[in-house]
Write a protein that binds this DNA or RNA. Structure first.
Lengths: 334, 334
DNA sequence: GCTTAAAATGAAAACGGTTACATATTAATT
DNA sequence: AATTAATATGTAACCGTTTTCATTTTAAGC
């Protein structure tokens, strides 16, 4: 494998000149620039980027911790990240953590071991023990989507509370007053925020909150199905179910159908995220759309700014949401 | 940031001893080992892995080119990869190529620029121009899932032809003889193989192949929906539709429902892949299950063997499939 | 044409580890 | 206790770049 010295010899210049030609072409005369470029071609030179990154101390790699790439919403976020990263000259190292904190640590350590410049977390908690904290005590990190905002790190998030309130208001406006909620994991801030928004809307409409209408879930199809089965069997069945994500909603709808309940005539179902499948289930799912790709783009941009010292105080970016009304929600069947 | 020299000074030994303590602990006496370990703690030493990888020439990174992480089947494959990689001491660098050959090149070049040791492709074609081919003319690469087998690289694949034949036989056994197929992109070898299997079964059953029952698609929900709409409108409608993946099948089912066709009474629908959603649509989808995680594990294992020179001739691994019969296929309504 | 500033280039020292080789220490053998 | 082998440690070269600093070349100003 040809190295920079081979190029230098072939071009009859010093290695410094070769390096400069490649890094800052304007700093070398057009004449030598051409000589060097020709030599690069001639010897088939490919810079050893491991050496470059080592020497320069900048890897231009960003680690992204994603709970599971199987989540179609995250997949869209990742697409946005990759776009923005490419534009800014960075590579994304995607870590599919599966909620496993060992895997999380493994990849997070890439920052403290100089394999990556910064970190983006799509799932906010405090995964980082002291061993992976860098010198000034703060990792170059951005939290996106699911954030715990302790003011230390930049965050890009949705106003989940407002979105959940908007969806609940939609259901109330259709005449529903017994509205169940299938939650995400209690440990998730998303769950808390969406629950709060749900309560906000109830309170505002003068509907008293009923703890018994809350059902546990974990954002999976199966959990939605399980909760749906339970709900279908209730004597005093709610007329609407608000699910904290679309997978849950699709699972619940399936359970309702198998229990011979018609959606939305017998029971309305609403989701959250607007994943691609939601438009193709029967009936199509009413949900909250999030600008997923934009989440990714913003997170990357923020992180790169942070790395370049362009950010002093940790900013908070709130992304807009949109209520998408489809066929799965309808008038309450009193 | 403390470096190896700081540790050496603190422990009162040479840098070589520190390096040995960390890399091959058995080669240093227990006494100094303890001294060094204590010093590592004391100064908060974190090896600069960029330096290690540069010096040793082994990055222990594997690049994985995935057409789109949004494909839930690929997501499972990736999970398997990450597992196997972790066990073998490798990191997966996931590249979401979106079919964009620039992104593909960008990440594939990580191998020729010493940022990664090898490459796994989940979508086989010939993306690599000469500039990214290494010295001996061959990249350390494994093709998985969707493979063009030119005998040069190890492959891990499914017998798509046999699987498609099995599914078609299933439909024939239910009395169907007019069986449509919604294809994937023609450029994909998967499409060709599955089409061949479909024809095999028809031929074997003495059913003549009808070109007009072939419908274009691209593995997306929308494409399935579009094809489904077309099929629903046909005067001489087929009684079954075999879709080359589950997304397509789910899209088609939705179109059928909106056209007031009942699945499977009016028309049977079959998919391929057995993604999680398939069990939760109405009716649940008959499909072909693939050992997705095992695909990933095998691909990684193969690549690491290749890197370690344990493989001489490019092996071909064929993974098993399973026909999963659910509610979307039923007796032909003559 | 001479002086001076600016631009282009080269020599060599880093960067932070690993590792071959030399040397010192310890253990084994007689 | 002396000799030898085995083990432990140290010295220094090296990996392929970038970058500082010194030097040379070119351009500018008068």
């Amino acid at each position: 494998m040809a190295n920079i010295r081979d190029v230098a010899d072939s071009a009859g210049v010093s290695v410094a000149t070769v390096s400069r030609t490649l890094q800052q072409p304007e700093r070398v005369s057009p004449k030598t620039r051409n000589k060097v470029m020709a030599a690069v071609q001639a010897v088939g030179y490919k810079p050893n980027l491991m050496a470059v990154k080592f020497r320069s101390g900048k890897t231009h790699n960003l680690v992204v911790l994603v709970p599971t790439v199987a989540n179609v919403f995250f997949a869209r976020v990742i697409s946005g990240m990759q776009e923005a990263a490419a534009e800014l000259g960075y590579s994304i190292l995607l870590a599919n953590t599966l909620g496993n904190s060992e895997i999380e640590s493994h990849y997070a350590k890439m920052v403290s071991t100089s394999q990556a410049d910064g970190l983006i977390q799509l799932r906010a908690h405090n995964p980082f023990d002291a061993t992976m904290i860098n010198d000034n005590g703060l990792l170059p990190m951005v939290n996106a989507c699911e954030v715990i905002d302790d003011g230390q790190y930049p965050v890009v998030s949705l106003d989940n509370r407002a979105a959940a309130k908007a969806m609940t208001e939609h259901l109330i406006s259709l005449g529903h007053s017994r509205i169940a909620m299938i939650k995400g994991p209690n440990s998730s801030p998303l769950t808390q925020d969406r629950l709060a928004g749900y309560k906000d809307a109830l309170t505002q409409a003068g509907i008293s909150f009923d703890e018994n209408l809350l059902f546990p879930g974990d954002f999976t199809l199966q959990a939605g199905y399980n909760a749906g089965e339970t709900i279908a069997r209730l004597k005093d069945r709610p007329t609407a179910v608000f699910c904290e994500n679309d997978e849950t909603a699709i699972g619940a709808m399936q359970a309702f159908k198998q229990a011979n309940l018609h959606v939305p005539n017998d029971i309305s179902v609403a989701g959250f995220d607007d994943i691609a499948f939601s438009a193709f289930v029967d009936p199509p799912l009413t949900t909250i759309a999030q600008p997923a790709e934009e989440f990714g783009r913003t997170a990357v941009t923020l992180l790169v700014d942070l790395l370049n010292g362009k950010i002093r105080k940790a900013p908070k970016v709130i992304m807009p949401f949109e209520l998408i009304v489809r066929g799965s929600t309808g008038k309450a069947s009193s």
